[in-house]
Simulated assay, not measured.
Amino acid sequence: MNIAIIGCGTMGMTHAHNLGKMPGVKVSGVADLIQKRADQAAEACGAVPYKDWELMLEQVKPDTVVVCLPTYLHKSLVLKLAERGLHIICEKPAALTLEDAKEMKAACSKHGVRLFIGHVVRFFPNYRNAFDQVRSGKIGEAKMAYFKRHGSYPIGVSFWYRDRSKSGGVIMDLMIHDIDFACWLFGDVESVYASVTKPSLSMEYAQVTLKFSSGAIANLTGFWGYAGPFTTQFEISGKEGIIRFDSNQVQSLDLKVATGGDDQKVAVQVPSSPTLHDPYYDEVKHFIECIREGSEPIVSAADACRAVEIALACEHSAQTGQPVRMGGITS
């Protein structure tokens, strides 16, 4: 498959490294307005570097384009690529409004091309392992979960993150990972309640409670400005056990299941599935296989639209200080 990359920042470089070693894939061109970044990405995957993405498409004629631009630029580029008949793998979130995300999805459907949004957490071994454990009934019916995602404030590449009209803030850009995973785990969200505080230009903290139609509850925290290492944690509780994960503590799940006797209550370490490549490699490989085989992806464009809708509902709740039922303010 002939692939091109537009945007050679952190995620563009990640995809360049992975696609450059993926069997059956040729990265023919990479484009970035900053020539140095385009050159570095090109070297990583053996492609030709460009500053002009339109010239690149004319010359290398890819089948699929990986879009790694800032969020506020996703819609306009995706619509143009769809009109050209190109399949699209776009970084999350899909867009900053539900209307834009739906328009992107509709345009790709109209032009007969595939649209994949990179909600990569579904491909992280520990998260996928936890999902499988819940689905298998290991902890009984799961009714409560807690997700945490803390990282440094994204600076250095540009300051667009600080403009909420371009990034959407910590909920839309960071917490949306856990919003998507929680929806994958529990299904439809009935209502949300959220609070956001931004004590400085380089710090933003959010807390969200999602209530699901199934009766399950998920509490999420997202933090930009954390001084320590990037941290993810989750805890999923069921009627018969609990699953815990802390990226700073272990690289496998801690699964505790209730048994008949106290002497049998032991922690069972469930190791993460062994992987040769990182989750971003597995994610894009999966999307490429879906294009080749015409199969449905683990995360659909509809899932990505839903994540945007929920993130926007959370923002509205934070602004008003009131719970928001889904179907409320989502623009």
Rank of each mutant, 00 (worst) to 15 (best):
F159G: 14
N219Q: 11
D188F: 04
T231E: 12
P274Q: 03
G261H: 15
E296D: 14
R122E: 06
W160N: 12
Y280N: 13
C45L: 08
E103T: 14
L57C: 07
G260N: 14
A302D: 15
H286G: 02
V113T: 08
K198I: 07
V268A: 09
Q233R: 15
A307M: 10
D163Y: 14
I171H: 05
H87K: 12
H87P: 04
R122I: 07
K148P: 02
K21S: 10
F212A: 03
E190Y: 04
I298F: 14
S317H: 01
G137K: 08
A307N: 04
L312T: 02
N129I: 00
A106E: 13
F147A: 04
A227N: 04
I3R: 07
D173Y: 14
E315M: 13
E240Y: 08
S213L: 14
R149M: 09
I3K: 09
D303T: 01
E235V: 06
G24K: 10
G85S: 08
F212G: 01
P279F: 10
N126L: 08
H177Q: 09
P274L: 13
F245S: 07
S213N: 13
G241C: 03
A311I: 08
S237L: 12
R114A: 14
W184I: 06
F147M: 01
K256Q: 08
S167L: 11
L86E: 00
D262I: 13
D63F: 07
W160S: 13
V65K: 03
M144S: 15
N248Y: 02
L312A: 05
K143M: 05
E58M: 12
P70L: 04
L220P: 02
R244V: 01
A301C: 11
Q322Y: 06
D278K: 13
G7M: 03
G294N: 02
V299F: 01
C45N: 06
M22K: 06
S195K: 15
I329A: 14
H111Q: 11
G12T: 01
A4T: 10
Q233E: 09
R325V: 12
D100N: 07
A227Y: 06
N129S: 12
S191V: 03
V284R: 00
Q207C: 11
C68D: 09
L73T: 05
D188V: 10
L253A: 06
A95K: 04
S109N: 12
E91G: 01
V266M: 15
N2Q: 15
R37G: 00
K148A: 09
L201A: 15
P271V: 11
I6S: 01
E204N: 06
L57M: 06
L69W: 11
